[in-house]
Each structure stands twice: as C-alpha cells, then as structure tokens.
C-alpha cells in the first residue's frame, strides 16, 4: 500500500418531488456519520450543508419522482454528472404517493386546489427516475431503511453488489419470531407480496404491512387480493390497499386496477 491516501469517492444527494424523509434517513445515521464522512466526500447535499463541490460525482443518491417539466430536464443533468446513480425511496423508485395523479385528471386537481392554476406547470404523471435515465441501483422503502442505505453506500464505495435480498416481508417477519397478524388475528397484511427491507416492522407491533417497500419480485398480488376479500375486505378497499406509496409500481397498479375498475373511480 502507498502512503498517499486514495481520494474518497464523492457523494451527492439530489431531491426531486418528495417529502425529504429518505434524505433525512442519511442524517439519522448519527452513529455512523463520522465513519461515513471518512469513507466518502459529501460533495453535494443541500439538506445537510451549503458547501457545494462541483461535479462529476462518483455516487449520486436521488430522492423523489419526476413531476414537472423542469425536473424532467434536471434529472438528465444529474445523470450526466454521476458515475453511479442510486435512487432511494418509493418516490424515486416507483413514483411515490404523488403518483396517484397517474390514475386521475391533474387539471381537475389544479383547478380545485390553486387559486391561479395558470401558474402551475406540472406533468400529468409522477414517474420514477428509471423512467427517464438509466439507474444503477434502486433502494426501496417509504422511507428507506437506515441500515440498508449504509449497506448500499458501503457496497458502492467498496465496488461490490449491495446485500439487499429480494424476498417477502414474511421472511423477515418469521426470522424475527413475530406471530402472524393475518393467520392469528385476521388482520390484512401485504407482507407476503411486499419487498423485504424494513425488518418486518409493522407486524412486530401487531399491525398489517401496508406495502411501503413496494412489490417483491415474486409478488402474487391476485392471490393475496383474493384472500383479503375472504377476510371481509370490500373490493374497493382491496384496490385501495395497493394504491398507496407504490401505487404506480406495475404489480400494484395492475392489481388495484382489477378492483377499482375505471381510473376515475379512485379520485372520487
């Protein structure tokens, strides 16, 4: 090894349409922040520091979805300035809660919400970053999990594959020794079709999973929806449980459409 320190990889954090919760997860890594600052140079992170280091960046973390014409341009610039681009959270990976607009008429919304809708420049849809530029890695969650974020950053710094399993929340739930809320209480739970990563947080507090990590790769939403109907859930509600933070992810969007029928129905 030479004595000259290798330059730290330069990290940038970008925000699109989002609530900032995923970026805050980075700031919440209190115990690891010093180690993180030692491993990477935090070059662009308006949420934490006003210091700005010009690009290009080794790793960009992108939060939020694309909802405006200007953001549609900006994401191209971010991509061009980034060697690796990692999207974080439900907004960036699936469109987020704001993608509910994809199932409705945006002009109708703006005419009701804003006194001067003519000043609003917005797109008809909220779309994930991957709909606009190539993405190197997608980290799920609403918000993302702290430990998974650190793992993904470590993986990119160390140039290896992140250790993030594509499996159901049930797997984590059972490893944790939680009593199944569906089986033992009759509580609806999306865990069987939801991507793991949270450690099966909600069932550990006797609540059903509401799918904030989006669909697992193997999600059989139709079979689970059938079971929810059996548990007594009205069909309209079955459609709605799939229309939350990951409403626009293909697996959940298809399932909700099967129960809600026409797109306008959900808007009412």
């Amino acid at each position: 090894m030479s004595d000259r320190p290798t330059p730290r990889p330069r990290l940038a954090v970008w925000k699109f349409a989002s609530c900032d919760g995923c970026q805050l997860t980075l700031l919440n890594c209190e115990d690891e922040l010093l180690e993180l600052a030692g491993a990477v140079e935090i070059a662009y992170f308006p949420e934490a520091t006003r210091a700005v280091v010009e690009g290009p960046y080794d790793v960009s973390l992108v939060e939020g979805s694309v909802t405006t014409p200007s953001d549609r341009e900006r994401i191209q610039e971010v991509r061009a300035a980034s060697r690796r681009l990692v999207t974080i959270g439900a907004c960036a990976t699936a469109g987020g809660i704001q993608a509910l607009r994809n199932f409705a008429d945006v002009e109708e919304f703006t005419s009701i919400v804003y006194a001067h809708p003519e000043y609003i420049s917005t797109l008809d849809t909220a779309t994930p970053i991957s709909a606009h530029v190539p993405v190197d890695y997608e980290l799920r969650g609403c918000p993302i999990d702290r430990a998974q974020l650190l793992e993904v950053i470590a993986a990119f710094v160390q140039r290896r594959k992140p250790r993030v399993a594509d499996e159901s929340v049930c797997m984590e739930c059972k490893r944790r020794g939680t009593v199944c809320v569906t089986v033992a209480h009759g509580t609806p739970c999306l865990g069987p079709v939801t991507h793991a990563g949270c450690g099966a947080l909600c069932p550990a507090y006797d609540r059903g999973c509401y799918g904030c990590f989006g669909p697992a790769g193997t999600a059989n939403t139709a079979s689970l929806a059938h079971r929810l109907v059996d548990l007594g859930m009205p069909r309209r509600d079955v459609g709605r449980v799939f229309r939350t933070f990951n409403a626009a992810s293909p697996a959940f969007a298809e399932e909700s459409a099967r129960h809600l029928g026409s797109e306008q129905e959900v808007a009412r």
Binding site: S168, C170, R175, G191, P192, A219, N220, A222, S223, L224
Partner: peptide, 22 residues
C-alpha cells in the same frame, strides 16, 4: 396460482434447514 412465494411454510417447517450467509 395460489402460492404467494412468501416463504412462510419453509420458515415454520421444523425440518427445513436452508440458509444463506451474509
């Protein structure tokens, strides 16, 4: 068509022994 691929059956099965290492 019914299976969710959720893995619950293998997790609770007292003989299932498959593991991975992290």
């Amino acid at each position: 068509s019914r299976c969710l691929s959720c893995g619950n059956c293998t997790m609770v099965c007292p003989t299932c022994f498959c593991t991975s290492v992290e």
